[in-house]
Computed example of a mutant assay.
Amino acid sequence: VFVGLIVSLGSSTVIGNIIAGLVITYMRPFKIGDCIKLNDTTGNVVEKTPLVTRIRTPKNEVVTIPNSFVMSSHTVNFSQSAREYGLIIHSEVSIGYDVPWRTVNKLLVEAALNTPGVVDDPRPFVLSTSLSDWYPVYQVNAYIKDADRLAEIYSDLHQNIQDRFNEAGVEIMSPHYMAVRDGNASTIPPKEGEEE
């Protein structure tokens, strides 16, 4: 009975993976060679079988994933997006309020346009994502068509941002200000009836 239970459980898993493999083939969420993200795993699909899907990561690790797991997870297909619409990469920097936002936007767009793999149409754009107490946060967005070079393009973009800001004499930093007590009175309001 125990052996029969093991065989039946094993066969149900195998059958589940085969059915999932058929559904994946029908749905076509990705194809061989596509760069995808499956939960925490990102890489190129190198093999699809009735039982498993194999993904090669940027570090050349081959990850084998049961098809039933693929079916129950969300999949991001970078290659399909890059082919059809242009994949948008983005990166954030925080610069002090002393630097005009128009200057920061100009430098970020120039850095993006000088990055190999970034297309100039549609043109890169910058979003101001927050205005914190000490600094604003800027997000540069750029379109790429080659998802297989995602990590390389990100690295080049970050290097170009540093180069462009250094050339312009703009410091990439998140300034913080401290209130230092030097004998001045506290800013806490006095209680009612007390003198300041």
Rank of each mutant, 00 (worst) to 15 (best):
I6C: 03
A179R: 14
V109F: 05
L107R: 01
E171Q: 03
E152A: 11
G193W: 04
G193N: 05
I161P: 02
M178R: 15
G117H: 06
A147Q: 03
D148L: 12
Y135M: 06
F30W: 08
P136A: 02
I55Y: 02
P116Y: 00
L150R: 07
T75A: 09
V70G: 07
H176P: 00
V93G: 01
S128Y: 09
R164W: 00
A185P: 04
E195K: 14
I89L: 10
K31M: 11
G96D: 01
L113K: 08
Y97Q: 00
V126Q: 05
W134A: 07
F69V: 15
I144V: 08
H90C: 10
A82I: 00
L38M: 11
T75K: 09
N160W: 01
P175V: 02
P58K: 09
I32M: 13
F2K: 14
Q139C: 15
L131E: 12
T41M: 03
I18N: 05
S128Q: 15
A111V: 02
D163Y: 08
L150W: 06
I88F: 06
E195R: 14
G117T: 04
K106G: 00
N44Q: 14
K48D: 06
E167D: 14
V93A: 01
E192W: 10
L127T: 07
P122Q: 06
V119Q: 09
R181H: 12
Y138M: 05
W134P: 02
R102G: 14
T49F: 09
V62M: 03
I15N: 04
I36S: 06
R181Y: 14
I32W: 05
V118R: 02
V118Q: 08
V118I: 09
H74R: 14
G4I: 12
D120G: 15
L113P: 00
L107F: 00
G21P: 04
P50G: 06
I55R: 08
M173E: 13
A111G: 07
G43Q: 07
F78E: 01
K59E: 15
Y85W: 09
P29W: 05
V23C: 05
E171D: 04
N60C: 04
F78H: 08
Y26Q: 11
T42H: 03
W101Q: 04
K59I: 08
V45M: 03
F165Y: 03
T75N: 11
I88N: 07
E194W: 13
